[in-house]
Design a protein around this nucleic acid. Structure first.
Lengths: 239, 239
DNA sequence: CGAAAACCATGACAAATGTCATGTTTTCTA
DNA sequence: TAGAAAACATGACATTTGTCATGGTTTTCG
């Protein structure tokens, strides 16, 4: 199979994923500007959008698929900061702080992603105070989320963090079932460990325990949440 | 001794700490607006500016002194997110994301701090795109810093993190000496542990080791860095 | 398809770190 | 300034978590 990525045609104006994105309220003329030099490409699993330490040239807008954003440690272990999906965009943080990328982004599930050059993005941003304000609000919110993650990493046990992570994934990727929800994202145990901030083996062991305790079930690669209340208790939320 | 805080007179326009702050480039008329309903107060050690979970009513601008910003865990342990000092301001993150405070702020060293009501701050912010942009850049930078902290907390040992923390404190609070630098901030072992994200006893033990190994010396409550290179090695920077 | 690679699972063990107990020193404050 | 409280220091020990080894299972890809 060829490894070449195929270019595809995606119009911002008609983009299904835009509704839930920060671009939702932009005027058509602004969308025109964004589309002008945009290039859209399909990515396969494990392809990397950008690397930590390199210079941002624009932003990536996810039309479909899932992407992990992570920092690599000196020991070769990744710490996943967050997972982005359709409607999210990536790389604007470094762009706006005028720094090199602080993290790398790699595709988890096959994705269609548009790249918008820096200049076009900034043009729209600066001609559009409302949009700017909205983005500011989003960044401030993200900062709060990151601070919460930091505190939980420091204060909670691995078991608690894994339970909390499963619940968080359920919120974002959960698909309704009868009394249970399947988490619709393909994550290796290693990736899960790199979200939680622990060793792969530890995650495997704890998943086995959660399974024995009927809190979750494993459906192929995916996790099914059987007893969310018990998981909440494990996560020691607001305990 | 009275616990009452004394009101003091501080003019933004004449503020010595403004030069290094985000307010540095504001026009006099904007400073006037900020000053209009401002109230400035001196705080003693251990007084709290605001509590996690409460509603932000404005921003705090530090004229002098030092303040720790932290999240409290369910176990009663604090995780210190950062330490603010003169020129920094606090609370704008939650203000802009329109959320409750995500952290608490408590005085470490006697401080003079001005409070600027939300409406005045927002008025200046929205009438001043350049200032808004500067703040956006700052928030994006902070987000990057927080992500780095998260990754290091997850990937480095306590020993490495303590070494890195001492070096970081030296950068910010170091006072030049002959071949050594005293870190000019009074931190209890407990606070230091809450920055590093570990138990107090562990910090005490490691400090003793660093002292035996001639990397640091303890001058009263303050830490003196004797061998920064060795500390850098301990911290495993870019190793 | 079939071999190789990647991934998952589990046991055994080691290392790092936290917790508890105790005593000393420093700081606070009545 | 004396007594109480807080902070510091250290030992002993428990617990958590990571690491290494091994084998089974699934996925990938020529």
């Amino acid at each position: 199979m060829s490894v070449k990525n195929s270019k595809i045609q995606l119009q911002c104006i008609a983009c299904k994923s835009r509704g839930e994105s920060h671009f939702s309220d932009l005027k058509d003329e602004d969308l025109e500007i964004l589309s002008e030099h945009k290039s859209c490409v399909t990515y396969k699993k494990n392809q990397t959008l950008f690397y930590e330490g390199t210079r941002p040239m624009g932003i990536f807008c996810i039309n479909s698929g899932k992407v992990k954003v992570f920092k690599m440690g000196s020991n070769g272990k990744e710490q996943i900061l967050f997972i982005a999906q359709k409607g999210d965009f990536l790389g604007y943080r470094s762009l706006l702080s005028e720094e090199f990328y602080g993290a790398s982004a790699t595709v988890l599930e096959p994705a269609a992603i548009c790249f918008i050059p820096k200049s076009d993005f900034l043009k729209v941003l600066h001609s559009n105070p409302e949009f700017f304000g909205k983005l500011m609000k989003a960044v401030c919110h993200e900062l709060g989320v990151m601070e919460t993650k930091l505190a939980q990493l420091s204060q909670k046990s691995v078991r608690e963090r894994l339970a909390a992570t499963i619940l968080m994934l359920k919120e974002t990727y959960g698909m309704e079932g009868e009394g249970s929800e399947v988490i619709d994202i393909v994550l290796s145990r290693e990736d899960l460990a790199n979200i939680v901030g622990t060793a792969t083996e530890t995650v495997i062991r704890l998943l086995s325990e959660f399974k024995s305790d009927k809190m979750i079930a494993l459906e192929g690669k995916k996790i099914k949440v059987l007893d969310a209340d018990k998981l909440i208790h494990e996560a020691d939320f607001y305990g």
